[in-house]
Design a protein around this nucleic acid. Structure first.
Length: 645
RNA sequence: GCCGGGAUAGCUCAGCUGGUAGAGCAACCGCCUUGUAAGCGGUAGGUCAGGGGUUCGAGUCCCCUUCCCGGCUCCA
């Protein structure tokens, strides 16, 4: 038989030859380094016989697939160790994931497992790795497999196999054995556990079986594995570095905001944080005005009757706060839409008025479950850069496209490259299926018209309509939704919105809900991590730290500061009786983008000595105060990115 | 909300198997008048998250509550 290698050469092999045989035929070194083999683009074990005429490539440690393979191997070794340490433990699934792997276990009732057990689990795992136990594959009938796992009391495995039968019509399944441990597994695996060169258990957490909150909570153990100890060390170091960018840590360090038990999930914004907020708010005001949005402001407390009409009472009540005002039940708004609808409804509308675009930096409150709160990323007190567009059905696509372009304009300022998701109808929803069909198609059309790549996220839409979401990752790789464009045929129906068409008949408008930052809170959280606290000049809370070399020059420093303030800039004078070295150090630690050193020389010449963040002082530019104002003002005005020089 | 882990001075953290709390930085007071990443000396600062229990004795052990951290579910 013959197989073809990646470079196009053909390799002649004996009938029934395996991937391992092929690797050996190419070279002994390759055979030693081989972990698995790619057959017609599908990863397989080295030990499996090759089909004639296959496109073959040998997977080694250098291949991009190698890490995934090794991590999956390590997950099996973890399961093997856990089963030895806790007899009677039930196993479920253990895949490789980005940056590592996990395995989910159902421990016996009385077992208390925590990260304190990692050491002994790892020790056990190391024994298996050292023993270089081979992974052997066995294909058996589904009946046999069910029988086997039933006798072993492995209910989760039985359920998995039963699902394979119903969903895929499976007749056989594969089992993999490493040492004492046999698992239901598609594979592939490396030849033996000795290929795992470095691993570490990283955390332990609860995880629902099948991701279903109504089902059993399992214990998930996370770990990571690499092909060398150096790679592992580097990975761990990178995580440490990423933690330094955590917005919760930087928020404290840079004195931007704090959280308190007094009001969980609600930031207290400090003066420094508020300066970032205000700069962002200015961008919001400016661009919304420029793009045909009219700013409005609506109440936070609204009669419960309104929430009954909108559907929030039925579908969103658990996330809302309620109160009684003089025996009248009121709800605190979790969204601004019903309030904006009141403005639309305050007078008769004509087709000539549409589209009507209202924007509001709307403060909403949502009862987010306690376990989900996460710094600024997930709060209960949310300030959305909200907008609602009322338009005709014909205007939908154009309006959605305008929203997306607006979003990309904003994200470009920060150098963000968001991931797009199209979320479709959820189980909990209002509106009939035909309406949902139209709404989903409209969004899809807009995305395709703009040639944008997106991921489909079925069932994740809002209860009133499908949506396009813009996602960004935080410093530790967690993805957060920022912007959103949501289509809504339902609210207009429920509130009986109307406009008079050119036919003099009443028509129903369509609503588009959109936010681009998403919320000021989350957006600033992402910004802090994105910049690692080193904000570009236009966002920096303190733009220029003025450092008099001794307190003899405090007056001149104040004079410089006043000139900058008059020009709309944000300086701060460090007038303490401290050494220049100390003041520079602290200015650097505060991540101020500009430091201005002033002494006798500068005072006499009417200049400042300009040090940029991270730049040693030797090549400081000497600028007159006027020049300084021009330079800084220009940089702020164009919202220059730090990487733009 | 669920599973696991945490909470010690303003901040970052130490405090072994129970014997009554400590460092650095910050703050305050002096001296130094300082030229590009920490000048020197001193002083003060804690209901060890809150509540209950075990014990002669609890920061340390047990229980409850709150909040935080890591995940899961859910979400901007």
């Amino acid at each position: 038989m013959k197989v073809t290698l990646p470079d196009g050469t053909e390799l002649q092999l004996e009938e029934g030859a395996t991937g391992g045989d092929a690797a050996l035929a190419i070279g002994e070194g390759l055979a030693r380094a081989a972990l698995a083999v790619s057959v017609n683009g599908e990863l397989r074990d080295l030990a499996r016989p090759l089909p004639d005429g296959a496109q073959l490539s040998i997977i080694t440690g250098k291949s991009p697939e190698a890490l995934e393979l090794i991590r999956h191997d390590t997950a099996h070794v973890l399961a093997a160790a856990v089963m030895e340490l806790w007899p009677g433990v039930k196993i479920s699934i253990g895949p490789a994931i980005e940056n590592g792997f996990y395995y989910d276990f159902d421990f016996p009732e009385d077992a208390e497992v925590s990260d304190a057990d990692f050491e002994r689990i790892e020790t056990k795992m190391r024994e298996h790795v050292k023993a270089k136990e081979s992974f052997t594959r066995q294909d058996i009938s589904v009946q046999e497999a069910i029988e086997k796992f039933k006798t072993e009391n492995q209910d989760y495995k039985v359920e998995l196999i039963e699902d394979l039968i119903t969903n895929e019509g499976a007749e056989t399944v594969s089992l993999y054995t490493n040492g004492p441990f046999t698992d239901l597994c598609r594979g592939p695996h490396a030849t033996d556990t000795g290929k795992i060169k470095a691993f570490k258990l990283t955390s332990i957490a609860g995880a629902y079986w099948r991701g279903d909150a109504k089902r059993q909570m399992l214990t998930r153990i996370y770990g990571t594995a690499f092909l060398s100890k150096e790679d592992l060390a580097e990975h761990l170091h990178m995580i440490e570095e990423a933690k330094k960018r955590d917005h919760r840590r930087l928020g404290k360090q840079l004195d931007l905001f704090h959280f308190s038990e007094i009001s969980p999930g609600s930031p207290f914004w400090h003066p420094n944080g508020m300066k970032i907020w205000n700069s962002l708010h200015e961008l919001w005001t400016e661009q919304n005005a420029r793009r045909g949005y009219n700013r409005v402001k609506t109440p936070i407390l609204l009669d419960v009757d309104l929430w009954k009409i909108s559907g929030h009472w039925d579908k969103y009540r658990d996330n809302m706060y309620f109160t009684d005002i003089e025996d009248r039940p009121m709800g605190i708004k979790p969204m601004n839409c019903p309030a904006h609808i009141q403005i639309y409804k305050s007078e008769r509308r004509s087709y000539r008025d549409l589209p009507i675009r209202y924007s509001e930096d709307g403060l909403v409150h949502r009862h987010e479950p306690s376990g989900t709160l996460h710094g600024l990323m997930r709060v209960r007190h949310i300030t959305q850069d909200d907008a609602h567009i009322f338009c005709t059905e014909e205007q939908i696509q154009d309006e959605v496209i305008q929203c997306l372009r607006f979003g990309f304009y904003i994200y470009e300022i920060f150098g963000f490259e968001p991931k797009l998701e199209l979320s479709t109808r959820p189980e909990q929803r209002v509106g009939d299926d035909a309406t949902w069909d139209r709404a989903e198609a409209a969004l899809e059309n807009a995305l395709q018209a703009e040639g944008l790549e997106y991921e489909l996220n079925p069932g994740d839409g809002a209860f009133y309509g499908p949506k396009i979401d813009l996602h960004m990752k935080d410093s530790l790789g967690r993805s957060w939704q920022l912007g959103t464009v949501q289509l809504d045929f339902s609210m207009p129906e429920r509130f009986e919105l109307a406009y008079t068409g050119d036919d003099n008949d009443e028509h129903r408008p369509v609503m588009i809900h959109r936010a681009l930052f998403g919320s000021f809170e989350r957006f600033i959280g992402i910004l802090i991590e994105h910049y690692g606290g080193e904000f570009p000049l236009w966002l920096a809370p303190v733009q220029a730290k003025i450092i008099p070399v001794s307190d003899l020059f405090n007056d001149y420093a104040d004079q410089v500061a006043q000139t900058l303030v008059d020009a709309g800039l944000r300086p701060d004078v460090d007038a303490r009786t401290e050494s220049v070295g100390k003041k520079i150090r602290e200015a650097e630690l505060s991540k101020a983008p500009v430091m201005l050193v002033v002494g006798a020389e500068e005072r006499d010449a009417g200049t400042v000595s300009v040090r940029r963040r991270h730049n040693a002082g030797d090549d400081d530019a000497k600028l007159t105060i006027g020049e300084l104002v021009d330079v800084l003002s220009a940089e702020v005005a164009e919202r220059r990115r730090p990487d733009a020089g």
